[in-house]
Structures are given as C-alpha cells and as structure tokens.
C-alpha cells in the first residue's frame, strides 16, 4: 500500500499536471460560483417567453435545478437503506 502511494507520488512528480495543484481546483470551484452568480442575475437582462406563469419567477431555473438535484441525491441516499445489498448478492444464482 505504501509502495503504491510512493509510486503515485513519483509518477505525479515526473508528470506534473495543473490539476494536481489543489489551488487550481479551488480556482475551478470559485469560477463555478462566479458563473452561477452571473447566470442567476442575468434574469434581469433578457425577456422570457414563458408557457407557464411560474417560469417567469426570478431565478426559477436556477433555484429549481439546485433544489431538485439536492433532492435527487438525498432521495437516492435514502433508497440505499432499503435497496442496497452486498455486491455478490445474486452470485449464488448462477
């Protein structure tokens, strides 16, 4: 295990990549925050062609996308309690 970790370190030292740097990953995350903020407030600047009244609420798509995705993950996590079994659960069948 330790050898593997060392080999990894050596490989990363020999093949540097900008994604190895934690600061660059943080930069990506900050860029995402910035883009989201910009998109959220862009609702001021264009005309929506709505089919349903709720579509015209300010930031509807952004809020809906965020809340539903959090809901999706939490729902799926709860499903694990009931549905998750060992990986070899069905192996005795075959």
């Amino acid at each position: 295990m330790k050898d593997k970790a060392n080999a990894n370190k050596e490989y990363n030292r020999d093949h540097p990549h900008w994604l190895d740097n934690k600061r660059n990953i943080n930069r990506i995350i900050y860029a995402l925050y910035l883009i989201c903020t910009a998109l959220f407030f862009s609702d001021f600047f264009y005309h929506k062609h709505v089919s349903f009244s709720f579509e015209s609420w300010f930031g509807f798509y952004a809020v809906y996308g965020f809340i539903m995705c959090v809901g999706l993950v939490i729902g799926a996590k709860l499903m694990r309690i009931i549905l998750m079994r060992r990986e070899d659960y069905y192996d005795s069948d075959s």
Binding site: L32, G65, C69, I82, M84, E87
Partner: peptide, 25 residues
Amino acid sequence: MFSALAFTVLMLTKIYPPELHSTNL
C-alpha cells in the same frame, strides 16, 4: 450550472453518497 453547483456543494459537504461495492435491488 446550478445542478453542477449542487453536485459541488454536496461533494464538499460530504453529503454526496460515496461509490460503494454493492448491488441495488
């Protein structure tokens, strides 16, 4: 992008379920 934001936030807060060796019924 807000869906991506949700993923990032859930990952950073470790709420996102880890990948596990498992079978789902």
